[in-house]
Structures are given as C-alpha cells and as structure tokens.
C-alpha cells in the first residue's frame, strides 16, 4: 500500500467510526429515557456526525478522485466501510448504548490525544478540535457507566449483560494492523500497542467504580476497520442512511 492509500484508509476508519456511531446515537433522538438525556445523546451524535464530515472531506481530498463527503457516506456499500465492529452494534437499550459509548470513547480519547501530535497538519487540526468534544463524551459515558452500574439491582444487571455482549468487540480497537503500523511509521498516527495499557487501565478503573465485572473473553471479534467482515447490522444502517441518495441518485438536497 502506498502512503497515500494507507492514509485514505486510515481517514476512512476515523470518519466511518464517527459517522456510524453518530448515526446509531441519532436513532435515540426523540426516544430517550428522559428529556435531558435525549438532549445529551443528541449532542454527542451531533459532534460525531460533525467530526465525520471533517474527516470524510479530508479523506476525499487525499483520495483525489473528486469524491465528496456525501459520496463517501452515501454511495459506498458494506464492504467499503472501515468502521469498528463495536460502533455498528445496535442501541438495544440505554445500557448497551452507554457501554458501547464508553468502550469507544475511552479509545477515541486516547487516539485523538495522540493525533494532536500527528505530523499531518490537517489531521492534527481536526484532532485538536475533536478532542475537546471527545473529552466531554468520555466523561459523560464514564459517569453513566458508574451511575447505572452502581444504581439499582436492575440497572446493574442490564449493564453487566450489555458489557458481556459488547466486550468481544473491544479488542479490535487497540490491535494494530498494517495500516495502523504504516501510519505510525509515517508519524501520522500513534502506536496502538502503546495506547493499549492506558485503555485497559481506564476500563478497569471505571468498571471497579461501577461495580461491574470485566468479562472473560477467549476470542475477540475483528474485521470492521479492515473491512474484512462486518456484522449484519451495518447493511441495515446503510439501507436507512443511504435511502434517499440511492432512490434519487445524483441530486442536490
């Protein structure tokens, strides 16, 4: 892979994570467990779709084939998406939503903190702006991990169930592959192996405070960020997300 190709892949990963998780969160809009949290979740969704726009615009620019952010978001199929498996998992209930958010925010925060040191000026600027938002996201999801984990018997149960189900998707976040490696060598992205201890420590700390058990996982799932094998959920997200553009191609909206 040339450096440009690898950088395009890398930006798609970042952009698709933000887009798909933002989309998932936007499904809550109008249906939150309480008005204040409806607003809070929508805030995070807004930040993430906003970040997706900056990242996909830049990805399109790096690709240099005249595509736009919307071309990338609305006309690629499942196999061309590069988001983590974790972020495409369904909302299920507020417990799954919070656990998914925490597992992601924890990684996303460390990643963006590192990206503010990137040698790529454009990516560094995006990361600096996003980091403020992600810092808040991580605080929000951490607080709710603790509040629901250590809330009632029922909320504790629900959180443990969600964690048991979703933890298998957390391995992919901090396991570097070729693209990650290439970005690290070029000084564009961080060494994921070096992020992992901080990630694991934060999970441990928050779970302890939330009185939740770290699930024992034999095998982690992967295949999202390299597009090797997404879960079945992504196709339905795209069916909805892309409906108008697919039904009426090539128009201004």
């Amino acid at each position: 892979m040339t450096l440009t190709e690898a950088k395009f892949e890398y930006l798609l990963r970042l952009g698709d994570n933000a887009l798909i998780l933002g989309h998932r969160l936007s499904e809550w809009c109008g249906h939150g467990p309480i008005l204040e949290q409806d607003i809070a979740i929508t805030n995070i969704a807004l930040d993430q779709v906003g970040q997706a726009r900056s990242l996909l615009q830049y990805a399109a620019e790096v690709e240099g084939k005249g595509r736009s952010e919307d071309d990338l978001a609305y006309t690629r199929d499942v196999m061309q998406f590069r988001n983590l498996l974790l972020v495409e998992q369904p909302n299920e209930d507020f417990a799954y939503t919070i656990v998914r958010q925490f597992l992601f925010d924890n990684f996303n925060f460390l990643l963006h903190q590192a990206l503010t040191q990137s040698k790529d000026e454009h990516l560094r600027a995006i990361a600096e702006k996003s980091l403020k938002e992600i810092t808040y996201h991580l605080r929000y999801s951490s607080e709710w991990m603790i509040r629901l984990g250590d809330g009632t018997e029922e909320s504790h149960q629900k959180m443990q169930t969600a964690l048991d189900d979703l933890f298998i998707y957390s391995g992919e976040l901090t396991s570097p592959d070729e693209v990650d490696q290439q970005m690290h060598e070029a000084g564009i992205g961080p060494d994921l192996d070096r992020l992992k201890p901080a990630y694991d420590q934060k999970v441990k700390d928050i779970l302890a405070e939330a009185t939740l058990q770290l699930p024992e996982v034999k095998y982690m799932q992967s295949g999202g960020k390299d597009g090797r094998m997404h879960t079945e959920h992504l196709g339905f997200i795209l069916a909805e997300l892309q409906f108008v553009q697919r039904a009426y191609p090539g128009m201004e909206w």
Binding site: L19, H23, S26, E27, C29, G30, H31, L35, D38, I39, T42, N43, A45, L46, V49, G50, A52, R53, L56, E69, D70, A73, Y74, E240, L241, F243, V244, Q245, W253
Partner: peptide, 24 residues
C-alpha cells in the same frame, strides 16, 4: 425525528438533528 436517520446529506443530517434537539 422520523427522518433523522434518512436525511439525504451529512449537512442536512446535522441540521435536522440540531433542530429536533432545539425542540427538546
């Protein structure tokens, strides 16, 4: 909210989400 997940562009999606959030 029924169209938040189907907004036809990312710009429209952000604007609609922000609008519905204003209503909240």
């Amino acid at each position: 909210g029924n169209w938040v997940t189907r907004a036809p562009s990312l710009r429209r999606k952000v604007a609609l989400l922000a609008k519905v959030q204003d209503e909240a």
